[in-house]
Design a protein around this nucleic acid. Structure first.
Lengths: 197, 197
DNA sequence: CCTGTTTTATGATCCCAATCATATTCTCTC
DNA sequence: GAGAGAATATGATTGGGATCATAAAACAGG
């Protein structure tokens, strides 16, 4: 998380989005740095037959979409507001200026990327070779970790089974049956409609 | 890729490993920065029933293992030499010193992480929701891209079907059948024993 | 409280990659 | 060029998640 005032000093704009709005689409050039000011943003892909895969869900204080900005490639996924939300938006030039003039911020960003890479590595191996129950527990761990902004939790982790399915690459029915089983074993707390832990 | 002499100036050691040697193991603390000087290193996981998953294969000029160093977490995977190899090894302190005193190098590292994150994102979505043939083609694309060091190819991409299986989370037999099919369709070149493209 | 929509639930069936078993081909070395 | 080990090949079977179909429960909001 980068300090709000610092962002504003470097020319950041605070941009509002309504639930369902798209911030950018897969394949577009990366033009901006984003950090969530309020609400929640998800990044996702759709494969050819329309099945969704959620790359991540970002809430207050979390930045997203930096990799393509820094790697000079197109966006690998879409970004969409899953609630009404506001984001700080910094142009690429402004962002690079911030990095070069503020080594501490640069290091923070590097650490953020490193952390995400760390969890993605775990996720890939889990998803590719584990059974549904493991995948679900891991994704939940992951979200708990990644939702930590500077050590403090910002999250709620109230996910629908559908979202859990889209995060793990499973099907809703499979997630429902797996979470049931996990709940029975006491390895997962569920609160009526949403998945906790 | 960081310039060899620069690394040496900051105290890097050139360390030799024999085929099969382990550089570090999953769960250990990250103490060093590594860049391949010669040969090839793989990073991998084993799940509970011994099935291997290869996170990546690194050859000359490529660095690996930085994320846990920067994120202050344990290694998420093992590193093992898959041929006789030499690596430049820099202690964490030396590495951080290099980053802080050399912004250009820092930016380069940030870009490298960003690029890897970009490809991991693609991989996760592919692996989680695509059929074997797609997964194989994508992994190959990925290796081709990631094997580029400063724009020029360093790679060979001669993978056994077993390695391809361990990279995609599939089984050897499945990879054999899928590559056969892809070769017939002309979407993949195979040269006797190894897989090209 | 009623109504419409979203989410959860559950049974039946299908399909394809995993698994098991075995054979063949390639490659390296002595 | 013979023998051993690795890698590729291929058929048969199985198993578990996907898919399909339908129902019930939870929630939102007038």
């Amino acid at each position: 998380m980068i300090d709000e005032n610092l962002l504003l000093n470097y020319g950041a704009k605070r941009v509002p989005f309504s639930k369902g709005d798209q911030l950018f689409r897969e394949g577009e050039s990366a033009l901006n740095f984003y950090q969530v000011a309020s609400g929640e943003i998800k990044m996702n892909n759709y494969n050819e037959d329309g099945k969704e895969f959620i790359q991540g869900i970002f809430s207050i204080g979390q930045s997203f979409g930096e990799p393509p900005l820094l790697a000079n490639v197109k966006y690998p996924a879409n970004a969409e507001a899953i609630s009404d939300a506001e984001v700080f938006q910094l142009s690429k030039e402004q962002f690079l200026e911030l990095l070069s003039s503020n080594p501490k911020v640069h290091l923070k960003i590097t650490e953020t990327l490193a952390k995400r890479l760390y969890y993605k590595a775990i996720m890939v191996s889990e998803i590719s070779s584990q059974e549904p129950e493991h995948r679900i527990l891991r994704i939940i761990d992951y979200l708990k970790q990644v939702d930590k902004v500077d050590g403090k939790f910002t999250y709620r982790l109230n996910l629908t089974r559908q979202q859990l399915a889209d995060l793990t690459g499973l099907r809703v029915e499979t997630v429902i049956r797996a979470t049931k089983s996990l709940e029975k074993k006491g390895e997962l707390q569920i609160k009526k409609r949403k998945v906790y832990r």
